[in-house]
Simulated scan of single mutants.
Amino acid sequence: MSLQPALARQDDRNQPIHVVHAESFDGYNQPNSISTFTDNVLITQGTMKLTGALAKIYTAKEDTSVDHVIVTGTPQKRPHIEQIDDNGNLMTGDADQLYYDNVNGIAILTGNAIVHQQNKGDAHGAKLTYNTQTSYMVGESNGAGPVTMTFLPKQKPLPPPKHGAAPATSPAAPAKPAAKPASSSSTSAPASASSASKE
């Protein structure tokens, strides 16, 4: 199953990756290496955030740029991803494991995966693959139950008031002015109207 909604964030992949928080760190920043971050890990790249109990960052073979990130967690703190798209809508995803391909901007969520797209809908499956640049998504069940989708309806503006409701307020306003000028101006107005009609 696949879904292709509107624009995702186009420029996040060009931003630096920051490990904003972790309780411990093991590794070094060299080509073709692995750095491990544990406990309350928060990684950001532009508007995208990755959180989990443990994250492994794999650098490219030829330099120290990030090739991919694998985030794992616990039942109490599952791996989480979120990103704000170019329209200001928030995408969130949770799974038992999160694989983020930094080269192609692809997030692969496996194990009871859920992706929620604000104002668009939800996807559930054993494996959800989400393109962080285009919002293109593919879902797979892998024999662990069906893939499900929820599509939200387009939010429509409230309809204007019906014709019966508007006149109910308008007669009340003229009723007061008509009662006041009934003594003087109301008699002269019909007279001029009748004389105009006679001419």
Rank of each mutant, 00 (worst) to 15 (best):
Y28R: 14
Y28V: 13
Y28G: 04
Y28T: 13
Y28S: 14
N29S: 13
N29P: 04
N29M: 11
Q30I: 14
Q30E: 15
Q30C: 09
Q30H: 12
N32C: 06
N32I: 01
N32K: 13
N32V: 08
N32E: 13
N32D: 15
S33G: 00
S33T: 10
S33K: 11
I34H: 09
I34M: 11
I34N: 10
S35G: 07
S35E: 02
S35Y: 03
T36Q: 04
F37C: 02
F37M: 07
F37P: 02
F37H: 03
T38D: 13
T38E: 14
T38W: 01
T38A: 14
D39I: 12
N40V: 03
V41F: 01
V41D: 09
L42Y: 06
L42D: 09
L42H: 09
L42S: 11
L42Q: 11
I43Y: 06
I43P: 01
I43H: 07
I43T: 09
T44W: 04
T44P: 00
Q45C: 07
Q45V: 07
Q45L: 05
Q45E: 10
G46N: 10
T47L: 01
T47F: 05
T47K: 07
T47W: 04
T47G: 05
M48R: 13
K49N: 13
K49Y: 09
K49E: 14
L50R: 00
T51I: 00
T51A: 11
T51N: 02
G52L: 01
G52F: 04
G52C: 02
G52M: 00
A53F: 10
A53I: 08
A53D: 13
L54P: 01
L54I: 13
L54N: 10
A55R: 02
A55V: 07
K56R: 15
K56D: 11
K56W: 00
I57T: 07
Y58N: 10
Y58A: 07
T59I: 06
T59K: 01
T59M: 08
T59L: 03
T59A: 04
T59Q: 05
T59S: 12
A60G: 04
A60R: 15
A60C: 10
A60Y: 05
K61H: 11
K61A: 15
E62W: 01
E62Y: 08
D63V: 09
D63E: 12
D63A: 11
D63C: 12
D63I: 12
D63M: 13
D63H: 11
T64G: 05
T64Y: 10
S65W: 03
S65H: 14
V66N: 03
V66Y: 08
D67Q: 09
D67H: 07
D67I: 02
H68D: 04
H68K: 15
H68C: 03
H68V: 00
H68G: 08
V69M: 14
V69Y: 00
V69T: 12
I70V: 15
I70K: 05
I70D: 00
V71M: 05
T72N: 08
T72M: 05
T72L: 07
G73E: 03
G73S: 10
G73V: 06
T74W: 10
T74L: 12
P75G: 09
P75A: 05
P75N: 11
P75H: 01
P75Q: 08
Q76L: 14
Q76C: 06
K77G: 03
K77Q: 12
K77L: 08
K77T: 08
R78K: 15
R78A: 06
R78H: 07
P79N: 04
P79F: 03
P79D: 03
P79H: 02
P79Y: 00
